[in-house]
Amino acid sequence: MSKYIFISCLCIFLIGCASKETTCEFYEGFAFYMKNEHRIEIAKKPATIYYLMPLSGCEPCVASNLEMLASIPKSDSLLIIFVGISEMQQYNDEAATLKKQHNYVEDIDRNIYSYETDFGKPLLIHIDKKNCYYYEEITDLEVEDAKIYLEKHHE
């Protein structure tokens, strides 16, 4: 009986001490994409927030994300990845304005879809070398949460 209690306590202790580090299921696919398509080795970069922004998609989603990104001050730790081009000139113009304000790369041919990244909607990824702090697909209802995260964590 006491052996059972000791083993149970030990298990609880070990579980409580387990790392709480966020894992990014698609880190390897994203790192491979960034290296192959943009010549960026994310494992060698300091803390960076990557915001993958599809320019084609549902109008309210594209509009709300572009508007949110326009409200974020320039930061060396934020890199916007514009994916594709929009059929609506207004969104291309807004993206052009953002390109003057932020660090960015483009994936006009949408090559990201060839990699295992879980990319569909806008995607916010916060990585420092090989440590992934945040990896979240931004739905229409989460744009404000993304803004808060960006304001809190960009430098």
Rank of each mutant, 00 (worst) to 15 (best):
M68A: 11
E67F: 04
I81S: 02
Y27E: 05
Q101F: 01
F32N: 09
I40D: 04
D76Q: 13
F30A: 01
Y33L: 07
P73W: 04
I112H: 00
Q90F: 02
I125P: 04
Q101R: 09
A63P: 12
Y50P: 00
Q89V: 13
Q90I: 05
F26A: 06
A18E: 14
N36T: 05
I12A: 15
E116I: 00
K20H: 10
K152M: 08
N103I: 02
F32G: 05
K121I: 12
Y135A: 11
D118H: 01
G120Y: 15
V105M: 13
Y115G: 03
Q90S: 02
G120A: 15
C58G: 14
P46D: 14
A70T: 03
F6R: 12
E25D: 12
A43N: 13
I148Q: 12
G29L: 03
H38R: 06
G29A: 06
S77I: 01
Y149K: 12
E144N: 14
S71E: 14
M53S: 11
L14F: 14
H102W: 07
H126Y: 12
M53P: 00
V83F: 09
L124V: 11
Y104W: 03
S8T: 11
N103Q: 08
V83R: 03
S86W: 02
K147E: 11
D107R: 08
N36W: 08
E59D: 15
C132S: 03
Q89T: 14
G29P: 02
S2M: 15
F30N: 05
L124P: 06
